[in-house]
């Protein structure tokens, strides 16, 4: 756990952070809003006292109430992982800015997040499905996409729900939608 990193982050980004910096084991976590996300990541990448040059992971998260984009960064200046969470993305029309201008390698990870969650990344030139077929309609990792097994677990959601959702707005909000308090 790198205490110096936490205070440096708090000092540099204090105004844009939505929550205080959190640390656990070798992970440091900050939360920023959708508008601040890309400038914050750019600052973390460019400024020599942070120098987070490596994007290890980019993923979407559906908490059942909202979407999140989560970035994991690594730097040679600290032994900690930096997790940047961008919460509060609208579940019905998820739309955020793309990271491709900063890390071109994020392109496929954003395509995956689009495929799995329907999140639209503005600025990504190749935002199309990557795993599922082109004519597939729903987004499988959303919490309102049920596996066949779930029929036994939640009476509100039957097997047929699986393929039904068209656009994110059409997705039925079943009574048993799993929501996370941990995200």
């Amino acid at each position: 756990m790198d205490r110096a990193l936490a205070s440096a982050l708090q000092e540099r980004l204090g105004a844009t952070l939505l929550a205080p910096v959190r640390q656990r084991f070798d992970e440091t976590e900050i939360r920023v809003s959708i508008a601040d996300a890309i400038p914050t990541l750019r600052a973390l990448h460019d400024e020599p006292n942070f120098a987070f040059e490596m994007l290890i992971d980019l993923c979407g998260v559906d908490t059942g109430e909202e979407m999140q984009i989560v970035y994991h960064l690594s730097s040679s200046t600290t032994g900690d992982w930096l997790r940047v969470i961008v919460p509060g993305v609208d579940r019905n029309a998820p739309r955020v800015n793309s990271l491709v201008s900063l890390w071109p390698g994020a392109e496929w990870m954003e395509r995956e997040a689009y495929d799995m969650f329907g999140i639209i990344f503005e600025g990504n030139r190749d935002l199309r499905r990557i795993y599922m077929p082109d004519d597939y309609l729903s987004h499988p990792l959303r919490k309102d996409f049920y596996l066949a097994d779930d029929a036994s677990r939640s009476p509100a959601a039957g097997v047929r729900n699986m393929e039904r959702a068209g656009t994110p707005a059409d997705a039925t909000r079943a009574t048993a939608l799993r929501k996370s308090s941990g995200a």
């Binding site: 992971d57 998260v61 989560v70 994991h72 929501k179 995200a183």
Partner: peptide, 14 residues
């Protein structure tokens, strides 16, 4: 990247 919601199943596992 694992998220737990307190149940016996991971809530999200990236």
């Amino acid at each position: 990247y694992a998220i737990s919601d307190g149940t016996d199943q991971p809530f999200r596992m990236r």
